[in-house]
Design a protein around this nucleic acid. Structure first.
Lengths: 194, 194
DNA sequence: TGTTGTTTTGACCACTGGTCAATTAAAGCC
DNA sequence: GGCTTTAATTGACCAGTGGTCAAAACAACA
C-alpha cells in the first residue's frame, strides 16, 4: 500500500547501526533479529537488506568500532602515568573489563567462528591481537617469547570466555580477575628470556 | 495416515541420542535441528518431543556422557605410569585434546550460557572442574592456591575456546598446545605455596 | 510534465523449536 | 478371540528466523 518512506524519514546505514548497537547492548548476536531492528525503526525488515547484504555485514559494521575502542583503551593505559609493571597489570585487567562489559560485542569479536561472521572480522581480531602483543612487550623489561605473549592473551581470553557465563558485569568478577591477572603476570615475568 | 510405528521400528531415547550424537560430530548445537534428526530416523520431529521435552534436554543427555568421558580421561592419566610432573603435563594436554576433538560437545559443556542449556549442565561442569582441581593438586608436590588452579583451568579453557575458531583437530594445534601447557605449568610451579 | 534512478514494501521461501488433537499400534484383560 | 486402555506417532499448526525479489512509490532531474 505504501512502499517507500517520505524523504524526511529515509533509512540510513547509521540509523540501522545505531538501533542494532542499541539492541546489541542487552541481547547477543543470535537474539537480535533483523526483524526486531526493523520494527523499532518502523520499517520492513526487507529494507535493511538494501543497506546491508546480510546480518553478519551489519554486525561487522558495529564490531569495527569496538576493535578500535579496545585498541584505544590499551593505548590509553600505555601512554598514561605509572610504572610499566603496573601498566601491564592494568592492560590485562582492562582487557577483561572490556570483555565482560561488552559481552555480545566481545563474542562477535573473539568468539564467533569463521563462517558465521565475515572473514574481515578475523583480520580485525588478528590486528587487535598484534596490538596487544606489542603493548605487552613494550611494558616488559625482558624480551618475551612470542609464544608466551600468546599464552597470556589466551589466558585472558579464557577468563572472559568463562566468566561471561556467570557474570553480567566486570565488577562482579573483579576480584577473581585480579588474581588471574596476577597469575599471568607472574608467569610472564618468570619465564626465560628469548 | 499412519501414526505409530510397528514395534520393530519404535523409537527409543537411545536411538535418538545416537543419531543426535552422530550429527553432532560434524555440526554444532545450533546447526543440528530436531527435524534433521527426525529425518534420519524416519520419523516426524514431533515424535522426538515425546522422548525429550526440548532440544536442550536431548543434548544434555549427550553431554552427560562426555563429562564422564573427560573425567575418565583425566583419571586414566593419574593412575597411569610416569612421574607426577609429566602426568600433570599430560592432563593439561589431554584436556585441550578433548576440547579440540569434541568441539561441539565442548561448546555445550563449557561454553553455552545458563539460559540456553539446562542448569543441570552447569552442575556437571562444576563437578568436572572440581575433579580437575583435585587432579591438579594431587599431581603437584606443593600446596597450590585454589585461585591458581582455577587460573590454570581458565587458561586451558582459553586455549580451546580460541583455537576452535581456527582448527578442526587437536593435532593441528598440538605444538601451540604444548607451549601453552608449558606456560601454565611454569606458572603453577613457581607460584608461592599457600 | 515525463523519465530515470533510488529506496521501501510485503509477499514469499525454506528453515527453526515447540505444541497438540487425532490416530493407531501394542499390551493387558476377560 | 474380542475389548479396552495406554503408549507412541503423526502432521497440521504456531511464532519465529534470515534472506529474496517484483512491484510500488517517492525523489531528482530533464
Amino acid at each position: 500500500m505504501s512502499p517507500r518512506k517520505s524523504a524526511s524519514q529515509e533509512l540510513t546505514k547509521e540509523m540501522i547501526i545505531k538501533e542494532a548497537r542499541f539492541q546489541f547492548l542487552e541481547k547477543d548476536f543470535h537474539q537480535v533479529s533483523m526483524r526486531s531492528i526493523a520494527k523499532n525503526l518502523d520499517c520492513s525488515h526487507g529494507a535493511l537488506y538494501y543497506h546491508f547484504n546480510n546480518k553478519a555485514e551489519l554486525f561487522y559494521a558495529i564490531i569495527e568500532d569496538y576493535f578500535s575502542t579496545l585498541n584505544k583503551l590499551l593505548e590509553e593505559v600505555v601512554h598514561g602515568p605509572g610504572e610499566n609493571h603496573e601498566k601491564l597489570h592494568d592492560v590485562f585487567l582492562r582487557f577483561i573489563q572490556f570483555g565482560l562489559n561488552h559481552q555480545s560485542q566481545y563474542e562477535l569479536m573473539f568468539m564467533i567462528r569463521n563462517t558465521e561472521v565475515d572473514s574481515l572480522s578475523q583480520e580485525a581480531a588478528n590486528l587487535s591481537y598484534q596490538k596487544f602483543a606489542q603493548t605487552v612487550q613494550s611494558l616488559t623489561p625482558k624480551d618475551l617469547k612470542v609464544s608466551n605473549i600468546y599464552s597470556a592473551f589466551i589466558a585472558l581470553h579464557g577468563f572472559v570466555a568463562h566468566y561471561r557465563k556467570y557474570v553480567n558485569r566486570f565488577e562482579e568478577a573483579e576480584e577473581a580477575a585480579k588474581l588471574h591477572v596476577e597469575f599471568i603476570i607472574h608467569a610472564l615475568s618468570t619465564t626465560a628470556q628469548l
